[in-house]
């Protein structure tokens, strides 16, 4: 058939370090996560909406939330939707392939008004059900990042 495709290759293997400022509320969140296994949101002093992740501005009211507006949330929540990610891709946080398949869910922690998406330790989609209760699983040795909650587990009834 046609001519073989010629490839000219330049290979890079370069670390590109970044240092992100995460804000005072996130610092508090990760301190509490690391020290006390607690999950903190931020509550708008005007409308009362509880945000997870915590943040300094309520988008609905455009007013500031401060450290004293942080509230503790339950590590448990209710599953609103789920999937099992079953395709290969390079994870930009590691530079290597993200291991798959993995369970992935969207749920609202008890006490929060916004949702979160995270890993769920189930890779059989038939074992998931919308409305299931899920619970954060914490690492023994925590470092103060979201990986301190490696996944949520489905709370099986009975």
């Amino acid at each position: 058939m046609g001519k073989k495709e010629i490839e000219f290759q330049i290979k890079w293997k370069t670390d590109l370090p970044y240092n992100y400022s995460i804000g005072k509320l996130a610092v508090k969140f990760f301190e509490e996560l690391k020290e006390n296994k607690s999950i903190m949101g931020s509550k708008c002093p005007k409308c009362g909406k509880v945000h997870m992740p915590p943040r300094a501005v309520c988008a609905d009211c455009l007013i500031e939330m401060k450290l004293e507006d942080m509230v503790e949330l339950s590590p448990r929540g209710t599953l609103e939707g789920f999937t099992v990610v079953n395709y290969p891709f390079i994870d930009p946080t590691t530079g290597g392939m993200r291991p798959f398949p993995y369970g992935y869910g969207i749920f609202k922690l008890d006490g929060a008004d916004t949702y979160m998406m995270h890993f769920v330790n189930e890779t059989d989609h038939t074992k998931f059900k919308i409305g299931q209760r899920v619970e954060a699983v914490f690492k023994e040795k925590r470092e103060g990042n979201i990986g301190d909650i490696p996944y949520f587990r489905i709370i099986r009834e009975g």
Partner: peptide
Amino acid sequence: PVWERPSLAGALGPLALMANM
């Protein structure tokens, strides 16, 4: 980078959740 990247699977993961719901 702090909150969403670690578990996000690009666009299809969230689109799958939306389809599921």
